[in-house]
């Protein structure tokens, strides 16, 4: 152990003071530290706010992916999950929470909070704020505004539309344009603008209710011929975009469409679907969804 005495203390103090004078050192101004501290708090809070936006977009994705129809659109649930899961937003959520943590940790007293406390706080703040933003309808706006830009990512609605633009696989989606007077067919414009004549002979009342409401529908059926624009519909499901829990404050809704018919009472079909439909995949599951959920 080294020896210490007053003389040595004086020596060190003298050396330090000489260096302070020689190098013209002065204490850094207080505002620098205050600014730095506020900067980290504000940047941390900003990162958490961004993570909340990412979470609201993630909620929008989850709300608008219809996993019940995954058996019709995908070979298996894993393939569906890989295409439908909001990886971009989940990644952004985690990234911004980490950025928030790093910033809070660098504030004057940030070291007093454990990783678990800061991370949990950031996650909770993101979830609560993100849910509120989604409820107000901002999630969909973010998804549509930002989701289109990364080259490796397609917004969920674009992705879903692509699933329903595969008539050769028995999947067709688009807007109902008109209904034949005898209810045996209806006209549909698909997401690429192509006009289809859809045979409706195999549709049940629930399917027809979706057609009569107009708007966008998803059809599972069979193409009549590879090159024709006629499609035989077996099941029709409505497609309503959910912008939030209580509607959307940010998205201007389309004007209400008059129903193509007043009710389905004119049509009551109880006979089983034809053999054409029974061959489609997955017939029993779709029939169960058709009869209960929609």
């Amino acid at each position: 152990m080294m020896m210490h005495d007053d003389h040595k203390d004086d020596q060190l103090a003298q050396k330090v003071l000489e260096r302070i004078s020689g190098e013209h050192l002065v204490p850094r101004p207080r505002w620098e530290f205050i600014f730095k501290n506020y900067f980290f708090w504000i940047f941390g809070a900003f990162a958490v706010a961004l993570s909340a936006l990412a979470f609201s977009a993630m909620l929008f994705d989850i709300q608008n992916v219809d996993w019940r129809l995954s058996a019709a659109t995908h070979a298996n649930f894993l393939a569906f999950f890989l295409e439908a899961a909001p990886f971009l937003w989940a990644g952004a959520l985690i990234l911004f929470i980490l950025v928030g943590y790093v910033n809070v940790r660098r504030t004057a007293h940030g070291y007093r909070y454990s990783l678990a406390v800061i991370a949990l706080g950031a996650v909770l703040a993101s979830l609560v704020l993100g849910s509120a933003l989604y409820a107000s309808g901002l999630g969909g706006e973010i998804e549509e505004a930002i989701g289109d830009h990364p080259p490796f990512y397609r917004p969920i609605l674009v992705e879903e539309r692509s699933w329903w633009l595969a008539p050769e696989k028995g999947l067709l989606g688009g807007r109902v344009i008109s209904l034949a007077p005898d209810n045996t067919s209806f006209a549909l414009r698909d997401f690429k603008g192509h006009l289809w004549q859809v045979e409706a002979g195999d549709l049940r009342n629930t399917d027809f209710a979706a057609v009569l409401r107009g708007g966008i529908v998803r059809i599972v059926g069979v193409p009549v011929a590879a090159t024709s624009s006629t499609f035989h519909a077996c099941f029709v499901f409505p497609w309503e975009i959910r912008y939030g829990f209580f509607g959307n404050f940010f998205h201007t809704p389309s004007p209400p469409r008059p129903p193509l018919f007043a009710s389905t009472s004119e049509r009551s079909v109880t006979t089983p679907r034809s053999e054409i439909c029974k061959g489609i995949r997955p017939y029993r599951q779709l029939r169960s969804i058709d009869e209960t959920s929609f």
């Binding site: 060190l12 050396k15 330090v16 260096r19 302070i20 050192l25 002065v26 204490p27 850094r28 101004p29 207080r30 620098e32 530290f33 004057a108 007293h109």
Partner: peptide
Amino acid sequence: QNAFIKAYRNLNSFD
């Protein structure tokens, strides 16, 4: 020496 110089420079950050 470095520690005391640093302390002096950052005295305003002392909480």
